[in-house]
Design a protein around this nucleic acid. Structure first.
Length: 218
DNA sequence: CACCAGGCAAGTA
DNA sequence: TACTTGCATGGT
């Protein structure tokens, strides 16, 4: 009995060991600046990352990746630059919402945002229309290096296929499964989530192809 | 052709 | 509270 409990408790850290041994470091988030992380986090909502990359490149080419430029540009013009990632009207509005928020609440300073304590900053970011739990946590972890675990569709699918959860689950509960079992280190949360996405893409799509999956048997 | 991708908000009962 | 629907492009 104790052995079973111990195994279940250790499964999350063991999963990380296997993934890291198999894939090595993922070097996330694939972006150069805090703002680029934030923009990518909003643009990738329910969208293939490849489509997001094109939009980011387009924004870079037009020199639009600054808070000031994004504030001045209209939603409709912005929408044209992010067409490739889909939902472009909604996402243009969401980007504007976040940028306006940074100016209104933090004087246009991401540095000032970063200095806020985690829990308060999370609540504050979540109040922006268009930013839900995953987007908020991606921003907190990858742009601000705060110790918060990001849960996404792959994470949920992997937990379910491994019998760690059964039905659809509450975001916060899945997040706690990881955070209760791991030391609160941003670098660890960063690498772990990136690895889950990687193994998800390779082996845990909606049509599972578990053949050589490094998590087989866990 | 159908199906999916690193979600979220708004509407309905 | 618990479903359902709209949003939309590009790859497989």
């Amino acid at each position: 009995m104790n052995k079973v409990i111990s195994l279940r408790r250790r499964r999350i850290p063991l999963m990380y060991k296997r993934l890291f041994a198999f894939y090595g470091p993922q070097k996330w988030w694939p972006a150069k600046t805090r703002l680029e992380v934030i923009v990518g986090a909003i643009l990738t909502q329910n969208t293939n990352w490849g489509n997001v990359e094109r939009a980011i490149v387009s924004l870079q080419r037009e020199n639009l990746l600054s808070l000031e430029r994004l504030r001045k540009i209209s939603s409709s013009v912005l929408a044209r630059h992010i067409r490739s990632c889909g939902y472009y009207n909604i996402k243009a509005r969401r980007l504007k919402n976040f940028v306006d928020f940074v100016f209104c609440q933090y004087d246009g300073s991401l540095e000032r945002m970063r200095r806020q304590p985690l829990v308060r900053l999370r609540e504050h970011i979540l109040s922006v229309n268009g930013v839900g739990p995953e987007t908020a946590d991606s921003i907190l972890l990858y742009a601000f290096r705060k110790p918060i675990f990001v849960v996404d569709a792959y994470t949920q699918r992997i937990l379910r296929r491994h019998g760690i959860i059964n039905g659809p689950q509450d975001y916060h509960q899945m997040q706690q499964i990881f955070m209760r079992r791991l030391p609160r280190e941003p670098q660890l949360f960063n690498e772990y989530h990136a690895l889950l996405v990687r193994v998800g893409k390779d082996y845990c799509r909606t049509q599972p192809r578990c053949g050589q999956c490094p998590l087989k048997g866990l």
